[in-house]
Amino acid sequence: MPQRNIKKCDKIDTMKIFIYIFIAVFLAPLPAEAADPIKPIPLSIKYDRKKAELGKILFMDPGLSSDKSVACVSCHSFDHGGADPRPVSVGAHGKTGHVNAPTVYNSYFNFRQFWNGRAKDLKEQARGPLHNPVEMAMDKAEIERYLGESGFYVETFRNVYGVAPTYENALDAIAEFEKALITPDCKFDRFLRKEVQLTALEKRGYRLFKTLGCATCHNGINIGGNSFQKMGLIFPYPWKESFPDRYHITHSPVDKNVYKVPTLRNIELTAPYFHDGSVPTLELALRKMAYHNLGFDLNAEEVEALTAFLKTLTGEPPTIIRESR
């Protein structure tokens, strides 16, 4: 392995010593020959198709926002890997948020929802944007009134749920649609299933992904989404009170800049990167993560190889979207 340009701290304090020991013991990089830390996405999952189709309509309906200008899809674009290509989203009445909207694709596999994990599942997650004053700015009564005044929705909800539209059933339908948004059959999944081979550059990128320590946090079926980690573990990352990190949940100072690890699936499609949407390219994101969370600089060859590997994680668009386009 090439000699690493390790950054030196001007001052080593007790906390930094503890962090280094923690990394050495619990976050040690994996050897290149270690068992694969990534698991393929199943080619399909079971979901209620009628509920999901209704959820898709609701997901794309700007009528669920207070000024009828934005829908869920406005901030989770199907053309950008289920994410928002803007650093922060623009909601009802032109209001802006404080965080980059993460991809909705494969969110079913996340252990919690939102950057700070404040929602336990997709249905609970769906409540947030509908009520957030800088997103859709609606309330339960307004949503039920809007749906109940639509002959189409009344008929469709009765067909799917057996009753007229309700707020809870609307959330249930949206969650079922989001459950269906999986992106299987990426090149790397097919490699894991021994169906294809990676190029030499892609293989080198995967070896680096494991040996440098990336796979310590980005692992499992969603290559992330299964733990909380600190952004700026070695060299601090700028923090703002407005960032929705774990500190907003626990109010413990140690949770500042602690977020749910984002998935790396379809990462080439979901720029800009990081919770603040400040990084426009995948290459720059790799360099910044290596510096802030691993404590060293990547060279150009490493960035090239890692980028090649990450591009093998782009899967097929969700079937429920492809079939209607």
Rank of each mutant, 00 (worst) to 15 (best):
L130N: 02
G277R: 11
T312C: 08
Q125F: 13
L212M: 15
R112E: 00
Q113H: 15
H275G: 00
K46P: 00
E302F: 10
N132M: 08
R265L: 13
Y47E: 04
K240E: 14
F309C: 07
G82E: 07
I267G: 05
M231F: 06
D189P: 10
M1C: 00
V25G: 00
E142Y: 12
G55H: 11
F228N: 05
F78K: 10
E124S: 14
T14G: 05
F191C: 06
L201S: 11
T156P: 00
A24D: 09
E149P: 00
A141G: 02
E135N: 02
P2M: 10
P2Y: 09
T199D: 06
H218N: 12
E301W: 01
P37L: 01
A271R: 14
L233P: 02
V279M: 01
I12N: 05
G97N: 05
L171P: 07
D172G: 02
T14W: 07
A35F: 08
H76Q: 04
Q3R: 15
E124Q: 14
I38M: 00
Y105H: 11
L294V: 02
Y259T: 06
Y247C: 01
L282A: 08
N106H: 01
V70P: 11
M231L: 12
R86S: 09
Y153N: 09
Y20C: 04
H292M: 08
P42I: 07
A200W: 03
P253S: 11
W239T: 08
Y146T: 06
R265S: 03
V134P: 00
K51M: 10
N226L: 01
R118C: 04
P37D: 01
E316K: 15
P31C: 10
P184G: 04
A32L: 03
M289P: 00
L192I: 15
K288I: 15
A173Y: 14
S65Y: 12
I23G: 03
V303F: 02
T211C: 08
L306K: 04
A300S: 14
I320M: 02
K179H: 09
E33F: 12
I174M: 05
G295R: 14
V134L: 03
A101R: 06
H80I: 02
R325C: 02
S69L: 01
L181W: 03
T270N: 05
K50E: 15
F18A: 13
F177S: 03
I223T: 12
P133H: 12
R207A: 11
A308G: 12
E53M: 10
I23D: 08
I17P: 00
A271V: 06
E142S: 15
T307G: 08
H251P: 00
K11F: 15
E155W: 07
P40S: 05
A52C: 11
N106A: 02
N219Q: 11
D84K: 02
A271N: 09
P29Y: 06
E316H: 06
G117Y: 09
D84T: 10
L54V: 05
H93R: 13
H93D: 07
L233Y: 12
P29T: 03
L306G: 05
K16Y: 14
K123E: 15
V99R: 12
D84F: 04
G162M: 12
L27C: 13
T166Q: 10
L43N: 14
V254A: 08
P37C: 01
E33Y: 11
L192K: 08
K187C: 04
D255F: 07
F191T: 13
I57E: 13
S324Y: 05
E33L: 11
S324F: 05
D139R: 02
H76R: 05
P317S: 13
V70T: 11
E155R: 13
